[in-house]
């Protein structure tokens, strides 16, 4: 059963749009897949390599703005932003990496957090390039139907999933985990920690950047407050992986299911008003306390709790 799970899931997602679901559900699923992609990228850098980033909004935003600026300043198709953001995000993340990767633990986390904010305010102030806070709006999106967007983000998600699987099966994967478990020990074994941390950062950033470029194309409007948001992007990313399961292949997906689907359901319960956030926050606290490694990471615990397998 476990062996076939990826195929079953993929099959489900492939035929899902044919089940006659509404565009609303499609919208939620597109967001779900987008967040899964971002979550997987964060998981590589932070879950496997142990460098907890609080600044993935920086990469997401750079990707989105790559697309947006192509469209608004060069009158080209914003879809070109997807391949181009590989370069812009790659280069900028390399520069960020030079500055922040020498830091460890909470210091690294805070430095990435700050770099996300620096990019936001810079985008706000560089009006000649980014139109500042007025944001960039696509006159018309390429498709009205959700289907093309859905399959594009689905193929991105699948590609990223395979990429992560491949990367982690190579020597790189072992180096990453070695760095996470004990950086000094890894160093003394002759692992060039700076090099591998940089690789993890750039791969992670580029994937997030592509997701950002997709967001621009899909939503048709960005401004610095939206795509460089600390809480709505960076922290949501972390929560997705933490809730789903750090350093697990399925964690980001399960986390995105919880964070996107469940949050939407909780939000839609009529009559709750502003209360929905408190409920959701409470749920988060509960998950963190009782399932510290996330749902996938502590799946055994869940099974035990429901008496499925006596331990």
């Amino acid at each position: 059963m476990k062996k076939y799970m990826p195929f079953i899931t993929l099959g489900f997602f492939l035929i899902f749009p044919m089940l006659g679901v509404s565009t609303y559900v499609m919208h939620i699923f597109i967001l779900l897949l987008m967040w899964t992609t971002i979550g997987m990228s964060w998981n590589l850098l932070s879950g496997y390599c142990g460098q907890v980033s609080f600044g993935h909004a920086a990469f997401f935003g750079i990707g989105a703005y790559t697309s947006g600026i192509l469209y608004s300043k060069l009158s080209m198709s914003p879809w070109l932003g997807l391949p181009l953001s590989v370069f812009t995000v790659g280069i900028l993340s390399f520069i960020i990496g030079l500055a922040v990767l020498r830091l460890r633990g909470p210091f690294f986390a805070l430095a990435t957090l700050a770099s996300g904010e620096v990019f936001r305010v810079t985008a706000e102030n560089m009006e000649w390039l980014t139109s500042g806070t007025l944001g960039i709006m696509l006159q018309q999106r390429l498709w009205v139907s959700k289907l093309p967007y859905y399959y594009i983000i689905l193929s991105i998600t699948v590609a990223v999933f395979l990429l992560m699987k491949y990367l982690l099966s190579t020597k790189l994967g072992y180096y990453f985990v070695a760095i996470r478990e004990d950086q000094d020990a890894a160093e003394s074994l002759g692992i060039n920690t700076t090099l591998y941390k940089t690789i993890a950062l750039i791969v992670s950033a580029v994937v997030t950047g592509i997701a950002g470029a997709f967001y621009m194309n899909y939503m048709g409007y960005i401004d610095p407050h939206i795509v460089f948001a600390l809480h709505d992007i960076s922290i949501i990313t972390i929560m997705i992986v933490m809730v789903g399961g750090v350093a697990t292949q399925w964690g980001p997906f399960i986390g995105a299911v919880i964070m996107v689907l469940l949050q939407e359901v909780v939000r839609s319960i009529p009559g709750l008003g502003a209360m929905h956030q408190a409920i959701f926050g409470g749920l988060l606290i509960f998950i963190i306390i009782f399932l510290p490694n996330g749902i996938v990471g502590d799946f055994k615990k869940i099974k035990r709790f429901f008496g499925l397998r006596s331990a």
Binding site: Q277, A278, G281, I285, I288, I289, P292
Partner: peptide, 16 residues
Amino acid sequence: ILPENQVILTVGIGMV
């Protein structure tokens, strides 16, 4: 695996 669990916990507290 990651000690940063606590951070997310405080995010949850802040949200509530």
